[in-house]
């Protein structure tokens, strides 16, 4: 099996994948200011990885590693979100309370307290999860063997 797609797809992917990833990060980080946020940004980040995977192909070993990494990242993202929620709880407020709602200038990047952090955690969860779904569907021969 020859690995990956044609040279045209591969060159375009080289150009686009990085920008997709960056755009995803932008959407995540500005989630509290503009449309988008953790989920949309995470999907974009996952799309960048999926594009690379599709264009360049891979072998079983690499696929296994990618699956392991994305699964670990997904769990970390979920735990991160819970930790942000619990931080509010342990600080004596309610679960998911915003710890520093007044910090920073409104409508700038550094504002809105823990909401951007929660967005980042969600983006990790969604991006890694979606990539893991892609791997599991596209390469169930390798991955599902455990």
């Amino acid at each position: 099996m020859s690995r990956g797609m044609t040279v045209i797809v591969q060159s375009v992917t080289r150009l686009v994948a990085g920008m997709l990833f960056l755009f995803g990060c932008y959407i995540v980080l500005h989630g509290h200011l503009t449309p988008g946020g953790g989920f949309a940004g995470g999907v974009l980040i996952a799309a960048a990885f999926i594009l690379v995977s599709l264009a360049f192909g891979s072998v079983e070993n690499v696929e296994q590693h990618r699956y392991t990494f994305s699964s670990v990242f997904e769990s970390l993202g979920g735990l991160g979100f819970l930790a942000i929620g619990l931080a509010g709880y342990l600080a004596g407020h309610q679960f998911l309370s915003n710890l520093w709602p007044k910090v920073g200038e409104p409508l700038t990047l550094f504002s809105a307290g823990t909401i951007p952090l929660a967005n980042i955690a969600i983006a990790m969860k969604v991006g890694a999860g979606l990539f893991a779904i892609f791997l599991a569907l596209g390469a169930s021969r390798f991955v599902m063997k455990d």
Binding site: V72, E74, S75, L76, G78, L79, L82
Partner: peptide, 8 residues
């Protein structure tokens, strides 16, 4: 927490 910790 259990669900996310178990895979790790």
């Amino acid at each position: 927490c259990g669900a996310f910790l178990i895979p790790l």
